[in-house]
Amino acid sequence: MSAPLLEARGLAKAYGGVEAVRDVSFTLAPGEMLALIGPNGAGKSTLFAMLGGQLRPDAGRVLLQGRDITRVPASGRFALGVGRTFQVAATFPSLSVRENVQTALLSRAGELFRLMGRADRSHRAEADALLGHVGLAGAADRAAGELAYGDVKRLELALALGNAPRLLLMDEPTAGMARAERADLMRLARDIARDRAIGVLFTEHDMEAVFGHADRILVLDRGALIAEGPPDAVRRDPKVRAVYLGEEAGP
């Protein structure tokens, strides 16, 4: 049996005696959309940072396709195929949409020095293909700073895909987006994950995005994993409903 794409084993992190994450274990398969939810203060950000390499756990291990990456920093994980998008989209507003993606492709190829030369010709076809994949082919020559926010989030996704990730960590991917844009972006992420066999772990406050697009859901409360499973099972879980105290646990 092959190893999972991502495996967390007994992850724990404390701050001044307060346990932010306690003994959390789970797996993620290639092509799977896995949501991480929980009330404020549940430990989502801390767990996410341990998986991305921004924080080192006090205990436990993180494995990528069977390789222990617990002590590998974020930059090293990026080189191993761990991509990430952020709650506030990170793009280069003064560059064109195409040039943004070309920059990501140059970084992957270790050719950032070419930004001082003929970068406008580098990886153009691949950049255009990625823009077509995220629905931005018609905006390739526009400045990124001119895009509507929903398109900026699509561009950020294209930048992440430029590294050809095996694992994609998405932090609040629909934050700041209109309802229709949120649904479109999550469908796009799901389709890309399945087409390219990319494992996607995302945190999200929009429960429609979670229950409508995740294959499985992890629920944290006070640092501990209290529920895990497909959306229908998590929606019915009495512990989840108790934690949310009247908040909708699904559409």
Rank of each mutant, 00 (worst) to 15 (best):
A20F: 02
A20W: 00
A20I: 05
V21W: 01
R22D: 06
D23P: 13
F26C: 12
F26K: 14
F26I: 15
L28Q: 04
A29I: 06
A29Q: 13
P30D: 09
G31K: 07
L36A: 14
G38K: 06
G38P: 15
N40R: 03
N40G: 15
G43P: 13
G43Y: 05
S45V: 06
T46C: 11
L47M: 10
A49Q: 09
A49I: 07
M50C: 10
L51P: 05
G52Q: 03
G53N: 02
L55E: 12
R56M: 05
R56Q: 06
P57H: 06
D58H: 07
G60Y: 00
G60I: 03
G60V: 04
R61A: 05
V62M: 04
L64I: 14
Q65N: 13
G66H: 12
R67S: 14
D68C: 06
D68T: 10
D68F: 00
I69V: 15
R71V: 10
V72P: 04
P73R: 04
P73N: 05
S75R: 07
S75I: 01
G76I: 03
G76D: 06
G76S: 03
R77K: 05
R77S: 00
A79N: 06
A79K: 04
L80S: 04
L80H: 02
V82Q: 03
V82M: 01
V82G: 00
G83P: 02
R84M: 03
F86L: 07
Q87R: 08
V88W: 08
V88I: 15
A89Y: 04
T91G: 12
P93N: 15
P93G: 15
P93L: 09
L95K: 07
S96G: 13
V97I: 01
R98E: 14
E99N: 11
Q102P: 04
Q102Y: 01
T103N: 08
T103L: 11
T103V: 11
L105N: 02
S107V: 01
S107N: 14
R108W: 00
E111Y: 02
